[in-house]
Design a protein around this nucleic acid. Structure first.
Lengths: 229, 229
DNA sequence: ACAAAAGTGTTAATATTACACCCATGA
DNA sequence: TCATGGGTGTAATATTAACACTTTTGT
């Protein structure tokens, strides 16, 4: 009966790793200022308010933590966690959401974001509560959905190159893909991307064609990760 | 703060439709004996107890409603629904689970199952609360997971034929599949099924080889439904 | 023998993979 | 001109799709 309900966010983005030129998958974490788990890193989140639906609460938390406007990101429910002792303060059930964002030009600038930071998912600190598990589930969901949905574009800005999409796949799957075949696959799968009719400039090499997200919800045929090998 | 938390079950099975020989997808519904929505059909479910984890509560409800033992079925979390006015009695958040069962030889024989019945998902009555939405999400989840997991075998008894698996796919996807190609696909995908070394008998036509579930968690390559057409 | 269901063979179309090679730019 | 990515061509392989045909049973 007397449950508390929270939403927790697994906010993922692709950021250039410290030394390498390649991007890698990062997650937004906040440092807890109060017990329990004081000082530990945790997923951002908070209580669901009395009048709020679950997606509303997730949107609100996401806006509070990142300041991104509603259109420029993907947000979906991930799973719900409610083990009796997952929070020492009482019976708290948390509904986790997965958010995918482009690499923000301005760093995280939310209200209580003083202690918020991006962490490479390959080098995580210890997390509070059962957040390590939730995060692992979120990463696995992202990996799986790249196969059969055009979700990779949610990590990209409104206009992007095929190489940008490839960088997303390589960062999330953690393995290199053939640029030539990837290009063909992305441009030939119906509804994945739409050409803008412009090209990039300024960088080295041949300028790349710019694309926008297409209207497909699923990729057919899918873009399968190579067998585990 | 003061939330109530329930679990609701989308219990699916394949049953022979009234007149046709082919099986079709059915869902377990219970008729509500008390307000709200008295007399309406609803998904089985109930409150999560103080000491219970979410999967435990789902297992308990499933056992209460169907009496199936733990091993012979698939049970996974589906999604969580918590709109402020989804239950007129107060703020109730429900964690929905999806269960897949073989067609039970003995009909539903649970404790409070006097008013429980299987319904063809193609001919549903009006449902209580937001259960129509939850059920639709469950059916869609099942449809999608048949593509890239060996979950179809969860609808089959411990030993089954390839034709039995095909009947599952045809019922869930609602379209016929080529028996010859399907047979090859199922028997050649690693870990999907294991031959038992016995054959069926008694029916018409050539006896079919019997199989058990394999140990694969995902199908590679997947078994994609034909493009929407 | 015949109908019915199981299962194999074969071929064409489609998709994936590997990699040679050309294109367009900055330095 | 060279280095650097962007992008196309092409051939080998793998997978899917369509369907003829054989196998093994009950009647």
């Amino acid at each position: 009966m007397g449950f508390q309900v929270t939403v927790d966010l697994v906010v993922l983005t692709i950021r250039s790793a410290r030394q390498t030129a390649r991007g890698s998958l990062h997650v937004l974490l906040v440092r807890r200022g109060i017990p329990p788990y004081q000082g530990r890193w945790a997923l951002p989140g908070g209580f669901v308010l009395d009048h709020e639906d679950l997606p509303e609460a997730a949107e609100r938390e996401l806006a509070e933590e990142t300041g991104v406007d509603g259109a420029a990101r993907h947000l979906e429910q991930l799973a719900t966690y409610g083990a009796p002792r997952r929070d020492p303060r009482g019976r708290v059930v948390t509904v986790a959401y997965l958010a995918l964002l482009p690499d923000l030009p301005s760093p995280v600038a939310g209200t209580d974001a003083a202690a918020a930071a991006w962490h490479d998912v390959a080098a995580l600190p210890r997390l509070a509560f059962d957040h390590a598990r939730i995060l692992a589930d979120g990463v696995e969901r992202a990996r799986a959905k790249l196969e059969y949905t055009p979700l990779a574009t949610a990590f990209c800005p409104p206009e992007f190159t095929v190489a940008g999409v490839r960088e997303v796949y390589e960062a999330v799957w953690g393995r290199p893909l053939d640029p030539r075949n990837f290009h063909r696959k992305v441009t030939s799968t119906p509804g994945f991307v739409e050409p803008v009719g412009q090209r990039t400039g300024g960088s080295r090499g041949r300028p790349a064609e710019l694309y926008r997200r297409g209207d497909a919800v699923t990729l057919y045929p899918p873009l399968l990760r190579p067998a585990s090998s």
